[in-house]
Simulated scan of single mutants.
Amino acid sequence: MHADERAARIQLAACYRVFALLGWTEMIYNHITLRLPASVSGGDKHFLINPFGLHYTEVTASNLVKVNLAGDILDGSPHPINPAGYVLHSTIHAINGAHCVMHTHTTAGVAVASLASGLSQSNFYSAQLHDMVAYHDFEGITIHAEEGPRVLRSIGNRQAVILRNHGLLSWGKTLPQAFAVLWTLQRACEIQLATQSMGAPLPVPEAIAAKCTRDALQFDPRHGAGQDVFNALVRQVDRIDDSYRN
């Protein structure tokens, strides 16, 4: 196996375990996908996805499934993939720079996605996502390829995505960047949920939110784009169970 593919497999498998550590699991469902570098794919769009039927705590570097944009399994894996994961993620991987795509059904994420008003610009975390959040209307389970162009139109260049009535999604130029975006969006939803249980949120003015987003450096590749945070969480996972490296 090419060394770059091995490194990508370990990084993605670690991310699945990080999600499990954070409680961002949904039985055997949801997905994190990672595009393989050109040194491995020869310039074709090949990416890694979790084997369908395994919990995130069972995902390892070796059992991740390598597929192309057509959904063909390329590595002879005995595991199937979830069509819903393939359709949505392969669509978004078509975006230039969408190296990694993450999707969750957390309670807070689905709750905010189910509000007509969506994400409230009313807390420290949502203020860091000013003009970064896209919405896509619910069309049912994402197994129909014809939804793909509409998803891309909805997203544009925004890396934080709320799938209405459905859940949260992020994409990034690196896996840690996609993680930083999703973590911020998830925290914003959690705090909004808590706030709305007590009363009406206090809005953050547009100018202040725009300033917060400019001043927030965690998404910027020049400042690590979430790499330090991701590394810290991987170290936690390693202390618990490093079998994902297998």
Rank of each mutant, 00 (worst) to 15 (best):
A3S: 14
A3M: 05
D4R: 00
R6T: 15
R6M: 15
A7K: 03
Q11W: 07
A13I: 03
A14E: 12
L22V: 03
M27V: 15
T33D: 08
T33M: 08
R35N: 13
P37G: 09
A38S: 12
S39W: 08
S39A: 13
S39D: 06
G42H: 13
G42N: 13
G43N: 10
H46F: 13
N50Y: 05
N50L: 03
P51K: 01
P51T: 05
H55N: 11
Y56V: 00
T57G: 08
V59I: 12
T60G: 05
S62L: 05
V65C: 01
I73Q: 06
G76F: 09
P80V: 08
N82E: 09
A84E: 08
G85C: 07
H89R: 04
S90Y: 10
A94S: 15
I95C: 05
H99V: 13
C100H: 10
V101S: 07
V101N: 09
M102S: 00
T104N: 01
T106K: 00
T107G: 08
T107Y: 06
G109V: 01
G109H: 00
V110K: 04
V110Q: 03
A111P: 03
S117G: 15
G118P: 11
G118E: 03
L119N: 04
S126M: 05
S126N: 10
L129T: 02
M132E: 15
V133I: 02
Y135P: 15
D137M: 12
D137A: 14
E139M: 10
T142P: 15
A145W: 10
E146I: 11
P149G: 11
S154E: 12
S154T: 14
I155T: 06
N157D: 14
Q159L: 00
A160V: 02
I162G: 02
I162K: 02
N165D: 13
G167I: 04
L168A: 06
S170H: 04
W171E: 07
T174Y: 12
L175V: 07
P176Y: 10
P176E: 13
A178L: 06
L182S: 03
L185Q: 03
L185R: 00
I191Q: 04
L193M: 13
T195A: 07
Q196H: 05
S197M: 09
M198K: 10
P201R: 02
P201M: 01
P205Q: 12
A207V: 14
A210H: 14
C212M: 12
T213M: 10
T213G: 12
A216R: 12
A216Q: 06
L217P: 04
Q218F: 15
D220I: 07
H223N: 08
G226P: 08
D228C: 10
L233R: 02
L233T: 14
L233H: 06
Q236V: 11
Q236K: 05
R239C: 07
I240Y: 01
D241H: 00
N246I: 06
